[in-house]
Computed example of a mutant assay.
Amino acid sequence: MEELVTSLEEVVKNVIQFNEDLENHTDIVTQLSMFIHWYYIPTINAFGPSKYIGYKNMNTEKYDRGKRKTGVDTEKELKEWFVKLSVESEKAQELMEELYKLLEKHDKKVRSNANIHILKKGIKHSF
């Protein structure tokens, strides 16, 4: 089993890597519609799915289509820094629209049961 992240800085690094992997059209693009829990980092204006960003030093190759990884473990770890938005909230709807646009660039759709998580302390974190 892969090692879980232990700091918010590791999470941010993974979100950046996830978005680079998308831009480079790696295999992760084919899996975009599978992710349910999406995490948003306002300081870099980027999203990442829990099952990818919750493990140390992640990249598409290491992700290996999610083999031997579980979102249950990553969700527990990421709760330390993030809170899930209510689907009805204005902020969740605004961010969901941004997530739809991101996935549309890759001809993918957001799952109907997807959730958005944001930093508990808002945008005050700096890296």
Rank of each mutant, 00 (worst) to 15 (best):
70 T>Q: 02
32 L>R: 03
49 P>T: 11
86 S>R: 14
28 I>M: 07
95 L>P: 07
86 S>K: 14
87 V>K: 14
74 T>Y: 01
102 L>A: 03
120 K>I: 01
99 L>D: 06
25 H>M: 09
4 L>I: 12
28 I>H: 03
47 F>L: 04
3 E>H: 09
96 M>K: 11
88 E>P: 09
101 K>R: 15
31 Q>W: 10
78 L>S: 05
14 N>K: 12
22 L>M: 04
111 R>A: 14
54 G>D: 10
63 Y>H: 08
39 Y>H: 12
83 V>A: 03
16 I>L: 12
45 N>P: 04
68 R>Q: 14
121 K>L: 09
3 E>V: 15
108 K>W: 02
16 I>S: 02
41 I>G: 07
45 N>T: 11
4 L>F: 05
123 I>N: 10
25 H>G: 10
111 R>D: 06
63 Y>R: 01
39 Y>C: 01
72 V>G: 04
105 K>W: 00
68 R>Y: 15
111 R>S: 14
90 E>S: 14
18 F>W: 05
40 Y>W: 05
3 E>D: 15
53 I>P: 03
87 V>R: 10
55 Y>M: 08
35 F>R: 01
111 R>M: 04
119 L>H: 08
85 L>P: 01
82 F>M: 08
13 K>W: 12
87 V>F: 13
35 F>D: 00
33 S>Y: 07
92 A>G: 01
110 V>Y: 01
39 Y>I: 02
24 N>R: 13
44 I>L: 09
49 P>C: 09
70 T>Y: 02
29 V>S: 06
42 P>H: 03
53 I>L: 08
64 D>H: 13
31 Q>F: 12
74 T>P: 04
108 K>M: 02
68 R>W: 14
117 H>S: 11
93 Q>F: 06
33 S>V: 00
94 E>W: 05
106 H>S: 03
80 E>A: 10
108 K>Y: 08
33 S>W: 05
26 T>D: 02
7 S>E: 11
10 E>A: 13
56 K>C: 13
61 E>T: 09
67 K>L: 15
58 M>C: 02
63 Y>T: 06
35 F>E: 00
11 V>S: 04
38 W>A: 02
19 N>V: 06
16 I>G: 02
92 A>T: 11
64 D>A: 08
124 K>Y: 06
1 M>V: 12
39 Y>E: 08
81 W>F: 11
89 S>K: 10
52 Y>Q: 09
55 Y>E: 09
81 W>N: 00
3 E>A: 12
23 E>D: 12
74 T>G: 00
4 L>W: 02
112 S>T: 14
61 E>K: 06
88 E>G: 11
111 R>I: 03
124 K>H: 07
39 Y>W: 07
46 A>G: 08
6 T>K: 14
42 P>R: 04
33 S>L: 07
20 E>R: 09
123 I>L: 10
117 H>I: 10
26 T>C: 08
